[in-house]
Computed example of a mutant assay.
Amino acid sequence: MSLNIDWENLGFSYIKTDYRYISKWKDGQWDNGELVKDNNLTISEASTALHYGQQCFEGLKAYRTKDGSIQLFRPDENAKRINRSARRVLMPDVPEEKFIDACKQVVKANEHFVPPYGSGATLYLRPFLIGVGDNIGVKPAPEFLFCVFCLPVGPYFKGGLTPVNFIISEYDRAAPYGTGEAKVGGNYAASLYPHELAVKQGFADCIYLDPATHTKIEEVGAANFFGITKDNKFITPQSPSILPSITKYSLMHIASEYLGMEVEERDVLVDHLDEFAEAGACGTAAVITPIGGIHHKGKLHVFHSETEVGPVTKKLYDTLYGIQFGDVKGPEGWIVKVK
């Protein structure tokens, strides 16, 4: 089947593909799940997902390699994380095998939407879990839906790996003992307004400080922060209100095992930015967004450069990108072949 898609100029926007996976939890168990063509869900108006935010989601990608095969990157980690999120808002676990099988089914059924190797584009998968059924009280839903859909997306960077600037936000994305480390929609709803304020001021996004003291860097928009110190250490914040990024933990391993760097998860004080020679944000969508500068207390603190990516950030990006597309050998278990 031929598609009229300009692979080289794809953005990050919704495209309806042919099939998606849906499975229902009822009376204490999941059904077998199935692939369907309809991209609309019909749910009760009293569903807890609509009223009380009982839902969570994931994001991962399928990659076309040079030999034409297709692979997923660490889907077992996404399976583990969706279950940690689900438990936080009292939803049932999705068995890890079921999660990975659903992702594989969706990729295979939409294989012609997987972009060609060399285009820089990928097939983005969005698994999600929502509470549904007739329920108006503030309590867990009687039924749940687990779904996975996919769409082709372009490379995050149109002009290559280019640094962007961020501004420190006065707002919090999560409470100290709230849902910050769960991938639930409420965290993202809370970020919409601060993001809009940052963009209106000419920045790519805002950076959130720790909600308790407002002295430590936590998240960069919807991504995790990392810094490269002047003595070549990879540093990333540690906090109970940060979403644990699979990309971040992959970069930590690469920094240590591939680049021979010291790695630390610890507090990153916003008043001590001058300890870093380079900085970046990391996540599934972009892999790495280099941070040119951070605006704080009326001043822009510039790291390596506002126009050029730092050498260590570039090595980290190239290594992880290479593993994902099959050009660099990854650690055992990181790659799951679909075809």
Score class of each variant (00 low, 15 high):
T284S: 10
F146Y: 12
W7Y: 15
P331S: 14
E97L: 10
V312R: 04
L273W: 04
H272F: 08
E218H: 14
F166G: 00
P244A: 11
D210E: 12
P116W: 14
P127A: 02
V328K: 13
G53D: 01
A222T: 15
R173H: 14
E143A: 01
G260T: 08
R87V: 10
I335L: 13
H253S: 13
E77Q: 12
D27V: 09
N32H: 13
F128K: 01
V270N: 13
G180A: 11
L197E: 13
P115I: 11
D205T: 03
K104Y: 03
A204M: 14
I217Q: 11
G227I: 02
T162G: 06
K66P: 02
Y258T: 11
I254P: 08
T17G: 02
C206Q: 05
L35M: 09
N110I: 13
E111P: 02
A223I: 04
E96K: 11
I335P: 09
K37E: 15
R20F: 09
N110Q: 08
K158Q: 12
D27A: 15
D93F: 07
P152T: 08
G293P: 05
K248H: 13
K61C: 07
T289E: 09
V138E: 01
G221L: 06
V270R: 00
T289P: 04
A190E: 10
Y317V: 12
K230E: 08
L251E: 03
K248S: 11
S2G: 07
L41W: 03
G154F: 10
P237E: 03
E306V: 11
A286W: 00
Y208Q: 03
K248F: 09
G118P: 09
L259C: 04
V153Y: 06
L251K: 00
L161A: 08
G159W: 01
R173M: 07
P211Q: 09
E262C: 04
L3F: 01
Q324V: 02
I323K: 04
K24Q: 12
K216E: 15
P127Q: 06
V153W: 06
Q238V: 12
K233F: 00
V132I: 14
T307Q: 14
V89T: 10
A204L: 12
P240E: 13
Y188I: 00
R81N: 06
L123Q: 01
M91E: 00
F113M: 05
G53M: 02
L60G: 07
Q71C: 14
E34Y: 05
A79Y: 11
G310M: 08
A286F: 00
V338E: 09
P92W: 01
A190V: 05
F99W: 08
L316D: 08
F73M: 09
Y249E: 07
I228H: 02
A182S: 15
T284V: 04
L320A: 05
E97T: 12
L125Q: 01
V36K: 15
G322P: 09
E111S: 11
K339F: 07
F146H: 01
S239M: 09
G283R: 08
D134K: 15
L209Q: 11
L35A: 05
N187V: 01
V138I: 15
A49N: 02
